[in-house]
Design a protein around this nucleic acid. Structure first.
Lengths: 216, 216, 216, 216
DNA sequence: TATGAATGAGAATTCATTCAT
DNA sequence: GATGAATGAATTCTCATTCAT
């Protein structure tokens, strides 16, 4: 096989082109979805010819798959950093803000991911039930531990995580709507969002006062 | 014009077929997105031949547009019901639950909408900046009023609304992920979600005690 | 067969609708050509439904054929009137003007005919080699007789007829061009055309002076 | 864009195929008109697959447009050569014969043009009112000058040009009719046509004898 | 590596015609 | 007679992929 992907040691030029392709593909896929994107658009955005693009990747599907897999790692990073040894509320607030920053700085990745989810994750369901689930399970345990220790309001850890994902990714995935309603201003709303969410989760997760908890 | 849609009073069969088409289209569009959906799929799902489908609608775009416009109205209903005269926390909780129910009962509509947003709302941006914005502005004013009256924690009303949208729609839009993580059980998680969200927003929005507020 | 065309005695309503259809078809066919015209357009222009239209005619082709055949008769009328007993130059001038009037008053018919010719007369070649040729042959003989009698310049009668057809029909068939060049004014140019053509043919066909002819 | 047409310097193969396509398209369009022609026919005639044909041209319309525009230039050439410094009658006769030759040698081009005119010139009306009109205006001035100098019978120059167009193009545009009437012989009739037209215009345009003109 | 050329498998849409009432 | 409904056969155009160099 002449495919670059099959080679053992990618040359520098290979890495460079691969990166250009993936970047272009991210742009196109995140905006138009898998079916809506065309190789022409990607090739154009990457600055190379279509056949040349297919020299580096097996096909449209392969590009998309590679993109999703590479993305997942970055995507889970904020959650990985949730420190079991940290102060619960602070840890959750920090996680929340890290996620919000990702939505601000990597909206295309967020949309790519959301697109895939909407379609029923046909190209990434394995990873969801594997790597992702494992990490979430692990961190849910941590949160549950905090709850049981009375350091956090008694909430369902899974739904807590879901809500953090939802509220933060919303600013990337529904950006048009957000801008349409707030006015087309710059990214100022991320600051307001951070304040609001901090407040919401701080208030919503603060453990009941010690006295109140022990008595019943 | 021979299009049935152009006629004045739709016959029974027209209404029936039109409904069948829109239902089929909702299924297909919500799963594959606009570009990913094909008329073949829609015609199949509706039990019609492709040309017959085009006898009722001008084209693919027209079906999608009709779907989106009809949806928007239903979509905004829960927010419309937010009663300025009601008790703030209760109103918001009720709104939240209505939205959550919609995500449970109409996940396809939610995904259709999310798909459109992700693509940058090319076919519905007018309505967003018009009807939708107007309603949100109005209700944001209501919430702001509550805040200023000290009946709600001092939060940004827009971001509050966004967060409610995000957290509730998440269960429809990211359903695969939710099920992948929680296990493929039935809709039981909606109950847990309702409890969690109620708790989160109740805690996060409760106004500071009167005494506490006045003193600083 | 339920076709109206098959009936023996057409009712008044049948004649009326048939006429409406043919008139509509003339409009549409002459503008868009056979293939370019659609039954929808014709039905619309005739003010009836497509199936109803097909109740009166077997199909698209039948309408077109009927139109062409009915047209041919009218079309040849000016030539038929060429009177062998008349004064040659006057007869030809009169014929010329009759044709020019037809181009002015029936441009759609002219274009329908031209369209058919351009396509190679697939639907009317029989009539051309039959009825039309017979009439032309007959009148060509008349003209030849005038020439031989020295009452007309010695011209080829067939090409004379062709040139009269060409110059007069041009104002109908190439109307856009004529108007584009002369300016979009009303039909005033027909008057100028009549003068020019009269002059051209009078000068071009006048027999040489008697003395000049006999001497060589 | 992957279209070959968009590239800067056409390769040899591009020029070759482009020419083949245009030639095939000329054949098909001139016979069936724009709507009547199909890409299948053109592709077949050009010996290409349909998608390959669309690799060279944006679409059906683009092929037709290209054809018309390239044609117009050739089409106007005979008129451009009308020499203001020449002897009037001789110039006009020469123009006439050049046009007649074009009808004999490029009948498809003539029919393509006629087809477009019949439809109302939807794809070339700009050029008609621009380039074509300008040239005609210019040459009409020349002819008018000749008339005023008494070197030509006092005729309307525009209608003179129209009549030359009409009479010469007739042999291409109404070829079936001409052949149907004269018999299906070879191009012999062009010779007769040339003689007839020469005679007609010579007689029709000869200026009145100097003496005759001055006296009244 | 790179690209000009080519194509098969769709996909949307049109349209003459037929069916059923 | 009339029409709403339906459809099969095109027809234009797109696009992922392959070929050849």
């Amino acid at each position: 096989m002449a495919r670059a992907a099959a080679k053992k040691t990618p040359t520098r030029i290979q890495r460079q082109k691969t990166r250009a392709i993936l970047d272009a593909a991210l742009e196109v896929f995140s905006q138009h979805g898998f079916r809506g994107a065309t190789l022409d658009q990607i090739a154009d955005a990457a600055g190379l010819s279509k056949p040349n693009l297919l020299y580096y990747f097996e096909g449209k599907e392969a590009i998309h798959r590679t993109l999703l897999h590479r993305l997942l790692d970055t995507w889970l990073d904020p959650l990985r950093q949730l420190d079991p040894a940290g102060e619960p509320l602070r840890e959750i607030r920090a996680y929340l803000l890290r996620k919000l920053e990702m939505s601000r700085d990597y909206p295309r990745e967020s949309r790519l991911f959301a697109n895939e989810m909407l379609q029923g994750a046909p190209r990434i369901s394995d990873e969801i039930q594997g790597e992702l689930k494992a990490l979430v399970d692990e961190k849910a345990q941590v949160i549950r531990g905090w709850v049981e220790a009375g350091r956090l309001a008694p909430v369902d850890p899974y739904h807590l995580i879901f809500s953090i994902w939802a509220t933060t990714q919303h600013y990337a995935d529904f950006e048009v709507q957000v801008r349409g309603i707030l006015g087309a201003g710059a990214d100022g709303h991320f600051h307001d969002a951070a304040r609001f969410l901090t407040q919401l989760y701080t208030g919503g997760l603060k453990p009941p006062a010690a006295g109140a908890r022990r008595r019943p």
